[in-house]
Amino acid sequence: MSSETPFGACPVPFTKNDRVLLGHGGGGQLSSQLLESVFLPAFGNPILNRLGDQAMLELPPGRVAFTTDSYVVTPMFFPGGDIGRLSICGTVNDLAVGGARPLYIAAAFILEEGLAIDDLRRVVESMRDAAREAGVSVVTGDTKVVGKGSGDKVYVTTTGIGVVPAGVNLSADSARPGDAVIVSGTVGDHGMAILAARQDLGLQGTLVSDTAPLNGLVARMLVAGREIHALRDPTRGGLASTLNEIARASKVGVEIDEGSIPLRDEVKGACEILGLDPLTVANEGKLVAFVGASHAAAVLDAMRAHPLGRDAVRIGTVTAEHPNLVVLRTVIGGTRVLDPPHGELLPRIC
């Protein structure tokens, strides 16, 4: 982009806009203003500050892990997080559960004309804080503005790069009969916080999203036990979807003890009122681990020693019986299949 004003052209008057204008995405002076007043102060680092058309990266040895995700959550601010924090944590977590050390993030913003600059700044600063927490740098990005009514305030797409150290081999198809199934904490917190934050439901209270970067927790786990076969973060579709995905990919059965699944009382209560199964509700700061039985206790101890794994608990076991199915032992001693949810009746939650 050009920082000069060509001779004879009418310079853009220096104004302080408090709203995003179409011109902020035009690549001209308004774009520069936004970059310099909002993005660079938050994300600035030697790679980004070069403001090239691309980021040039030096990667440590190992396999490169690469992922992308778009975030469209409404409302953009919710108890426990916002779209900014979510957009960093979600992508960091997708790298982390592959055993990768997340390093660099690219962030693309689609802004709706009329968005308050202060709201954008809040989102960006929240991304900055989450990136610091996760130890990643935002090294390149893009901003476009769409006309009022063509978007919903702000959409963020983040792309992440990380490196998997030698000797780490996590894969969804690697769960084996006998593996312990461990969850890192209470489930359903994020999805219910989003639902409660929507005004039309009239549910207020102490429901708080669990949005958090899990790479620190994963690093501790990998040190504690080499027999971790699969990790996954149960986001959309919740614990039920994740368990089914692993069961199918690994062609094994999974047995879960319903009574052992950690649930907050307020999540349980809100789900009861709305007729939702908390096991199908999204999480943004939890993971499920499939760990060889002999390493399960060590991994569980390591998880509990980390703030994001304090409530970690073993909830079940992988079995050769009923391959591709997740079977729940109910609190009263019966059994049933735990299916992934059929579809999504609720509007966007992540």
Binding site: T330, V331, I332, G333, G334, T335, R336
Partner: peptide, 9 residues
């Protein structure tokens, strides 16, 4: 009944 497996018991 079916969800909790009551009839199996």
């Amino acid at each position: 009944i079916v969800r909790h497996g009551i009839d199996q018991l």
